[in-house]
Simulated scan of single mutants.
Amino acid sequence: MSSHPIAHIHLDPSKPISPLRDAHPQHRAHEHKHLPHPTALKVHPGGKSTGTENARLYFVGTATTILEWEGVRIMTDPNFLHAGDHVHLGPGVTGTRLTNPSIDLHDLPRIDLVLLSHYHADHFDQHVEASLNRALPILTTPHAHTALTTKSPEEDNFTAVTALDTWQSALLHITPPSQSSSAPVGNPDAENRGPPLIKVTAMPGHHVPPLLAKVNELAGAVPPTNGWMVELGRGREEEVKEVGYRMYITGDTLYVDELKSIPERYPDVDLMVVHLGGTTIPSPSLPLLMVTMDAKQGIQLVHLINPDVTLPVHYDDYDVFLSPLTDFQEAMASAGLGEKVAYLDRGDAYAFSVRG
Rank of each mutant, 00 (worst) to 15 (best):
G244S: 06
Y245G: 00
Y248E: 00
T250M: 00
T250L: 01
G251K: 03
G251C: 00
D252N: 10
L254W: 05
L254R: 08
Y255N: 09
Y255R: 01
V256D: 02
E258P: 06
E258R: 06
E258N: 07
L259H: 11
L259I: 06
S261I: 03
S261P: 07
S261V: 14
I262N: 00
I262K: 00
P263N: 08
P263T: 08
E264S: 06
R265W: 13
Y266A: 11
Y266I: 12
Y266C: 03
P267D: 10
D268T: 15
D268Q: 10
V269F: 11
D270G: 03
D270M: 05
L271M: 11
L271W: 10
M272W: 08
M272G: 02
V273C: 09
V274G: 06
G277T: 08
G277N: 05
T280K: 07
I281Y: 13
S285W: 11
P287I: 07
P287R: 12
L289M: 13
M290A: 08
T292F: 04
T292Y: 05
T292R: 01
D294Y: 01
A295R: 04
K296L: 11
G298A: 12
G298R: 03
I299N: 02
Q300E: 15
L301M: 15
L304F: 09
V309T: 12
V309F: 02
T310A: 12
T310N: 01
P312L: 12
P312H: 14
V313S: 04
V313W: 09
D316I: 06
D316K: 07
Y318F: 14
D319F: 01
D319G: 06
F321M: 12
F321R: 03
S323W: 09
P324C: 10
P324I: 09
L325W: 11
T326W: 14
D327T: 05
E330V: 09
A331D: 12
A333P: 00
A333L: 11
A333R: 11
A335S: 12
A335M: 10
L337S: 04
G338S: 14
G338M: 06
G338L: 06
E339Y: 13
E339G: 10
E339W: 14
E339L: 11
